[in-house]
Design a binder for these strands. Structure first.
Length: 268
DNA sequence: CCTCTATGGCGAA
DNA sequence: TCGCCCTAGAGGC
């Protein structure tokens, strides 16, 4: 679920329900109770997405920080007028509720109430976010072009650029015919500019679709409106055979996780 | 019912 | 590099 596109989508979806309103904040599971009390009933001014981080700007000056990690999920329920709040299902770390909706957060890696300067400290450790209009791609491109690290490792390094996860790194490299083990410094500036562009467009599409679909449907030969199944929506990620040429997909461990690639379409 | 997996990231070695 | 945290859905029996 959560690469950068998920977080940006959540930010805009949740903003429609919460921003400008007084929000009840609680922790049915209990682990977030003390922090929740700091902002319970406060007005939410803004929700900000930065890479895989979500920041909730409260009018009091507190800033909520959420990182979904691998398992975190939000569930949104809309309430009809006068409807009582539903009983939480499972382990709900944080519940945000208004008279018209309830948003439950389960399984996050991080969920805490910070100050603005703590939020800044997190952001300072991040590279440019391709989904943000204030992103400076040159920062990422320069860093990659000086690095002896593999592209597959650099794309997953949130301090180089942020928001890309294990699916998008594999798919973006595939689309550009780049082997994941190619070193950053062995990649031309032109190739890196194009790679950045690929990441931007893939993530943007992910926000729109609210899921990861990197394949061009025309290459699939399926009717254009059928919803793609999981495993149909990528060229190499988690596939046995390359969607384009049928070659068996290989993986190489980079940044501690398997990077899927096609040895034929992405020669070293 | 159970076991396995997952689109992350941290801190201890 | 490894272990660990956290949850839910899928699939097997």
């Amino acid at each position: 679920m959560p690469e950068g596109h998920t977080i940006h989508r959540i930010a805009s979806d949740h903003a429609k329900l919460l921003v400008g309103r007084s929000v009840s904040v609680s922790s049915p599971q209990g682990r977030f109770s003390a922090d929740a009390a700091l902002v319970d009933g406060d007005v939410l001014d803004r929700i900000e997405a930065y890479g895989k981080h979500l920041f909730l700007w409260w009018r009091s000056g507190y800033v909520g920080h959420v990182h979904l990690g691998l398992f975190g999920r939000f569930r949104v329920q809309k309430l009809t007028i006068g409807e009582a709040e539903p009983v939480p299902v499972g382990a709900v770390r944080m519940r945000l509720s208004t008279t018209s909706s309830v948003i439950d957060l389960a399984g996050p890696t991080a969920c805490a109430i910070f100050t603005a300067s703590e939020r800044d400290a997190i952001v300072d450790r991040l590279g440019p976010d391709p989904l943000r209009s204030d992103a400076q791609p040159a920062r990422a491109i320069e860093r990659i072009s000086r690095s002896g690290q593999a592209l597959g490792a650099l794309l997953l390094d949130q301090s180089v650029l942020c928001g890309v996860g294990n699916v998008y790194r594999a798919e973006a490299l595939f689309v550009n015919g780049l082997h994941p083990s190619r070193r950053g410094r062995d990649t031309s500036p032109d190739e890196l500019v194009t790679l950045w562009g690929t990441v931007v467009s893939m993530l943007c599409k992910g926000v729109k679709d609210n899921r990861i679909v990197t394949v061009d449907r025309r290459e699939l030969g399926v009717s254009s409106n059928r919803r793609l199944r999981r495993g149909e929506a990528t060229y190499v990620y988690h596939r046995d055979l390359c969607l384009r040429c049928g070659t068996p997909i290989q993986t190489v461990k980079l940044a501690g996780r398997p990077c899927y690639y096609c040895p034929r379409c992405q020669p070293s």
